[in-house]
């Protein structure tokens, strides 16, 4: 009995240290974003003025708008393609190693390599770079993640209800919309939310496929150039907003897909 409690206490201490390591840096940023002085040297009182400063910054607002457009289009396309892919793979009679590798690759390929490959590809074909090329590129990894979440759900899917529906005379189309789709819905939405966050946060591939000029700068690119200029209180505020959006989307995604965990 003693040994058990001691082990438990050790486990708790480990978790406190590791969670501290994971969350302290983020907590510091969030805290500083509300610091009147804006710098870690002194706390001069609670203030939201750095958030106000963001609203007056046309560059940041423009970049945020571009990010939203990219993320929405990439999410919609990748959710449709990724879901169909998941159903396609899971209902194949034979597993195919080549197909598995193809679908796994976007999740592990170093992003710098995919970024330069896409830049080479688009310029070889004389495609003008812009938001559309960022969207095309983001769909690549977004669809892989959507697919893996929907597949996890399909593994527990009871295909006999599909057969029952067909036996009772429903068309394939009706069966899909009335049976398969509602069952998969939580996983599809969870996948879409993950795709959305990945797209909002992606930097390197967007950087290489956006082309020159301000017109297609996304928020991560804007943040990167601000960081290179040095620490400013605005970055802390911006970082807090971006992380809150990601965290909200992920919490929602997790909550929708929570049956999966049990």
């Amino acid at each position: 009995m003693m040994g058990f409690t001691r082990q438990n206490a050790g486990g708790r201490a480990t978790l406190i240290v590791v969670f501290g390591f994971l969350y302290l840096p983020i907590a510091v940023l969030v805290g500083l974003s509300f610091n009147e002085a804006g710098l870690p040297t002194v706390w001069s009182g609670f203030s939201t003025k750095w958030y106000g400063a963001l609203l007056g910054n046309a560059n940041i607002l423009g970049a945020a708008w571009n990010t939203l457009i990219v993320a929405i289009f990439a999410t919609v396309i990748s959710t449709v393609l990724g879901t169909l892919l998941a159903i396609g793979i899971e209902t194949r009679r034979r597993a195919s190693n080549g197909l598995e590798a193809l679908v796994f690759a976007p999740m592990v390929i170093p992003d710098i390599v995919l970024a330069v490959a896409l830049l080479s590809f688009f310029s070889r074909l004389d495609v003008t770079l812009g938001l559309h090329t960022i969207i095309i590129s983001h769909v690549i990894f977004d669809l892989a993640f959507v697919c893996s979440i929907v597949r996890a759900r399909l593994k527990h899917f009871d295909y006999s209800i599909v057969e029952a529906s067909r036996d009772l005379g429903a068309s394939p189309w009706t069966t899909f919309w009335r049976i398969t789709f509602p069952v998969l819905m939580p996983a599809i939405v969870a996948g879409a939310l993950l795709a959305f966050t990945l797209s909002i946060d992606e930097f390197i591939i967007a950087f290489f496929t956006s082309g020159a000029g301000r017109s297609s700068i996304t928020l991560p690119m804007q943040i990167y150039s601000m960081i290179r200029f040095g620490i400013t209180p605005e970055i802390n505020a911006l970082a807090t907003i971006v992380m809150s959006v990601s965290a909200a989307a992920l919490l929602l995604s997790q909550w929708l897909n929570k049956d999966q965990l049990r």
Partner: peptide
Amino acid sequence: WSNYLIRTY
């Protein structure tokens, strides 16, 4: 899953 740049920053 949150922003890589920000975590590095």
